[in-house]
């Protein structure tokens, strides 16, 4: 059985022809929209993470700087991405960090607390953002699927069980609330 692909906005299988993601303009924007604020776009070669932290937005964490661990995960539009390897210059959509998720993630954050799904907390903002994206896309997921969807986010403290427990619990409660 092929693994279910993680995401993609063309689930109907319609060809993507002519569709530029986010309607990218041809010149780099001077500003980025982040958590409802506007921040300067930074130097041409800057990563999105550098721009965020340079602007005093610390909810995205630098842990590897190479797109290998997920601690810097933010939403660009509705896509969860690694901000440390994403050139800020190609970002045009609104950026959302863990601090900007707001009420949408209240149940998720509470579940992380109730399941002790964090210890040192450094990877947690990235975990929460990734989990938010996974659940926005679908709440009808098995435990294994959720673990697979979350597997790009390294946690060195918890051993993962409680993180997966927390995300599963929210998936179930959102299913029930439907």
């Amino acid at each position: 059985m092929p693994d279910r692909p993680s995401s993609g906005r063309n689930a109907a299988g319609a060809p993507l022809e002519g569709r530029a993601v986010g309607g990218r303009p041809r010149v780099q924007a001077e500003h980025l929209r982040v958590d409802g604020d506007v921040v300067p776009a930074g130097a041409p070669g800057a990563s999105l993470l550098e721009v965020l932290r340079g602007a005093g937005i610390f909810a995205a964490k630098q842990a590897c700087g190479r797109g290998e661990c997920g601690a810097c995960t933010v939403l660009v539009g509705d896509r969860a991405v690694m901000s440390c390897t994403m050139p800020a210059a190609v970002v045009t959509d609104e950026v959302t960090t863990a601090a900007g998720l707001g009420d949408d993630a209240a149940d998720l954050r509470a579940a992380f607390a109730d399941h002790a799904a964090f210890q040192c907390g450094f990877c947690t903002p990235g975990q929460v953002v990734r989990a938010a994206a996974v659940l926005r896309e679908s709440v009808d997921r098995s435990r294994d699927e959720i673990a697979r969807e979350m597997s790009g986010n390294i946690c060195r403290c918890t051993g993962y069980r409680q993180i997966v427990d927390a995300v599963c619990a929210v998936a179930e409660s959102r299913q029930a609330a439907r």
Partner: peptide, 18 residues
């Protein structure tokens, strides 16, 4: 399906998005 199953093994969901 082979292409999809291969992609599912590449890096992380976040990387595959971009």
């Amino acid at each position: 399906p082979m292409v999809a199953s291969a992609i599912a093994t590449i890096a992380s969901a976040q990387i595959r998005e971009v």
